[in-house]
Write a protein that binds this DNA or RNA. Structure first.
Lengths: 171, 171
DNA sequence: AGGGCTTGGTTCAAGTTTGAAACAAACCTA
DNA sequence: TAGGTTTGTTTCAAACTTGAACCAAGCCCT
């Protein structure tokens, strides 16, 4: 089977996307590191917890929401716990379970950092997009995410598309 | 000054975007790690080099194109050099300069990996978007990148927007 | 020519991420 | 209920990233 290379339009879109996502994550990471002393992911952990019932969530659920591996989350929570932002609690129903709970201090830090963070997201992202584009971004993102979510759910297949063998290599 | 929080539409777009970019980078990293034994960034280095005149580029130019720090590039190129994908050469005009040159082996690896990579990008991204959306993605990405590129070029300012002080914290 | 500033690149330590392996508890199923 | 599998989480080593510090070499100015 011959490879369907990317069209010029697709190439341009792909490169622009890669550049934008790298630059944006970098900018946000730097801002949060400066103002809150933690990278974006760590801030997101606090943020998700703050919106969860009782400000706590099981590790697996948290990882699921953040779209990261459990291993990565374990490390992050350990650090946040050391810093007093989060506390680990046992799970009553399931003794295997571990629950991450946002501390008052964590909540305070989050509240202090939020305005600056929102301002950053706004100035680097939303201030540059039309209302229409915001909608488009959501739809595009949702479409992409949808295709990748299932990963875990995907039925066994011996011919997964990304395992095909092998020129204009896109970046 | 009171914070301009994100509207519900913006929140949704932001979260969808974060999730999508995380999932997509993860999927691509995994595919390339599997099939080419290197993460996405490393593959991109080979790709950019392969398209450069004489298949070589100065470190700074390479970093600039990839939107990464020189430090990060140094590490990556060191690894790629160890693996024989890239060779470092001295720069004639500027004795400080260091040039990364794609080796034949590097080129071969790239050619071998390209079809699988393109297939991945296609199946996880472009197959899920309409032609229209591809155009939208490019425009949105370009708009975002434009605002962040200038960073280096930006004029001195004591009130950079993302340094403002501090509630519905977006992720 | 002799500073002094800027630029190109690397180095280093600390922090983070990855993926596989290890554990333990929960859940079957015979 | 014993044994085997699955699920939730952590651990560990290796790989990668970050940012500051460092070293040269080029540049500029007098």
């Amino acid at each position: 089977m011959t490879t369907r290379w990317l069209t010029p339009e697709e190439q341009r879109a792909w490169r622009a996307y890669i550049a934008a996502s790298l630059l944006l994550e970098d900018a946000i990471d730097r801002q949060l590191q400066q103002d809150a002393g933690m990278p974006h992911l760590y801030y997101s952990i606090l943020s998700v917890l703050s919106e969860s019932p009782d400000r706590r969530l099981r590790m697996t659920d948290l990882a699921e929401r953040l779209k990261i591996t459990r291993s990565r989350l374990t490390y992050a929570v350990t650090r946040l716990e050391k810093d007093g932002m989060v506390r680990r609690e046992a799970c009553r129903y399931d003794k295997r379970g571990s629950i991450a709970a946002l501390t008052d201090e964590g909540f305070a830090v989050l509240e202090r950092a939020a305005p600056g963070h929102v301002e950053t997201v706004r100035s680097f992202l939303f201030d540059r997009l039309s209302e229409e584009q915001v909608g488009q971004l959501e739809e595009i993102s949702a479409a992409i995410a949808e295709g990748l979510q299932e990963e875990g759910t995907r039925p066994a297949s011996d011919d997964v598309p990304w395992r095909r063998r092998a020129s204009s290599a896109c970046s």
